[in-house]
């Protein structure tokens, strides 16, 4: 009987600890983006624009090299 009780107690403890750890877990990405006065949102926006510009200019570059081959 005592064995069973100990097992039950352990089970409850295990469940509760896992619950607590679950409650403390937060999405890390959002925290990082919301930290330091949301400055990383600005960083993300800058990177989006830079990457977009690079892709666009790269596509134009490819067009030019194609034209160079033709001429």
């Amino acid at each position: 009987m005592t064995k069973f009780m100990v097992r039950c107690l352990l089970f409850v403890l295990f469940i509760s600890t896992s619950f607590f750890s679950f409650a403390q877990e937060k999405p890390e990405m959002a925290d990082a983006m919301r930290s330091n006065g949301k400055i990383y949102v600005v960083v993300a926006v800058c990177l989006t624009i830079l990457i977009g510009l690079f892709i666009y200019v790269f596509l134009i570059d490819r067009k030019i090299s194609k034209l160079e081959k033709e001429v």
């Binding site: 006065g37 949301k38 600005v42």
Partner: peptide
């Protein structure tokens, strides 16, 4: 908004 007001210069 906090510091993300700086996105005004981009967006």
């Amino acid at each position: 908004l906090n510091e993300s007001i700086r996105n005004l210069y981009f967006h």
